[in-house]
Design a protein around this nucleic acid. Structure first.
Lengths: 245, 245
DNA sequence: CGACCCCTTGACATGCATCAAAGGGAGTGG
DNA sequence: CCACTCCCTTTGATGCATGTCAAGGGGTCG
């Protein structure tokens, strides 16, 4: 269902001085420490970078395409996903502003990337990215750190899919999203992605996602102002769910 | 259930010349190209290495322990797993001879490691391992490569757990195991791990694993000489299963 | 030979998928 | 500004795959 691949390129050429490295993996949870570092170094790559805008559901790159660029999300949300032959879709992760896409070391993208919302990204050529990562030891260490954190997040998701029920998966998902977007109890948590996206990320159907949300709502664990915003009232209950069994 | 942590150390001190680096991740699919490289470089670390033997079900290290060593499996099989508070267990991956454990960049092991069979491992101090990885650019690149491959394997498993049915999961598992152990159609595939291990790895119950094996056996896709060996008769059917849906 | 452990199979229960239909919300055209 | 349409969400009814509970089988070790 995801769409065409259009590109609006704005050459943002500025001679900077250092390389800013970020791994081209699936979804780089580019948190404070490493994100800061990598983001900082990536600035050096501005002369080799391009700013691109994508509409909702637009394809950024397709699985199997040569991995010629590393992307950094500036605004909006991106999903990293794979389409099975039979039409099934698996969303490996959602990518938030500041995080990197495609920083892994592979010749062809193992996953597709699509815009969940209208999104702006900075694209760095892989050549310059690799030059940056191989130049400075500190930058290389940050790449390793980012890869490690991405691996840990992926393994955590593996545990979620392997051991948890529908409600528990939803709780885990919401807690991680709230954590990544710095939303706490009582505040509005933005669900930029649709129910189907959540379902394909958690290995459930859209109906089950709806029912799980309804169940948590009925249990007063969360409030649903509208379908794209949630208020997490009871973080303890959510944590109990995501931790337990 | 997994056991105590005993250690039989045989100091294997030999002054080698180069550092042999391997990432301390969950399970390092240390395939030919990178494995060769990393294995080669790790030889340099022999002066800082220890050979240890573990009995079946013995704990090599526990989740949460400080990650002071990087291990390389010499013989036997190891499982990398996590124990949930309620007793549930999740096996992130099995580690085969030649592969590394604990090569990720973290202060504490995010997972436990336990011997599936009696196993011999070489332990390298993290200090020397990191010295090796930071010294040579080539070695560092191999670490990045290993991390990337581990990440890809983990994401593949994520897809398996997120989108596939019991029979499909089993097919995917068997194909990967056969591939990693260089077993082809008609040959005996060794299942060193028990049914429960497979179940905890695939997010199923032991009964469902048994039934899935029985179903494939009844469909003549595989033969079951005994419970610890399989013969994959019809790779096409297995591939169709693991690919489809 | 006996005990233990793991595997296997059966019977039943249930969580989730599937099928179906109705209820918003946003954008478009009248 | 309202009405229509489309898309997504929500809820209900039903079925199935897998989990759960239970019992028996086979191999291995002492």
């Amino acid at each position: 269902m995801p769409m065409t691949l259009s590109v609006a390129r704005e050459q943002t050429q500025r001679p900077s001085m250092t390389h800013f490295v970020q791994p081209t993996g699936i979804s780089a949870s580019d948190e404070s420490p490493a994100s800061t570092s990598l983001g900082f170094h990536l600035r050096q790559l501005q002369p080799f970078s391009t700013r691109q805008h994508f509409d909702r559901n637009e394809t950024i790159f397709l699985e199997g395409e040569p991995a010629k660029r590393v992307y950094r999300v500036i605004s909006g949300m991106v999903r990293v996903c794979r389409h099975a032959p039979n039409g099934a879709r698996h969303i490996a992760d959602f990518v938030l502003p500041g995080e990197l896409i495609g920083f892994g070391e592979f010749a062809e993208h193992p996953y597709s990337a699509e815009a969940v919302t209208p999104a702006t990204l900075t694209a760095y050529t892989r050549t310059s990215f690799e030059r940056l990562t191989s130049s400075t030891p500190a930058v290389r260490a940050q790449l390793v750190s980012l890869l490690t954190r991405t691996l840990l997040a992926t393994q955590q998701q593996l545990f979620v899919l392997g051991c948890q029920t529908a409600k528990q998966r939803l709780a885990s998902f919401l807690l991680r999203l709230a954590d990544r977007t710095d939303v706490t109890a009582g505040e509005r948590l933005d669900l930029a992605m649709g129910r189907l996206d959540i379902a394909d990320h958690l290995g459930m159907t859209i109906e089950t996602v709806c029912r799980a949300i309804a169940a948590l709502r009925d249990a007063r664990v969360l409030t649903v102002p509208n379908s794209h915003q949630l208020i997490l009232n009871d973080l303890r209950a959510l944590r109990a769910l995501s931790t337990a069994q």
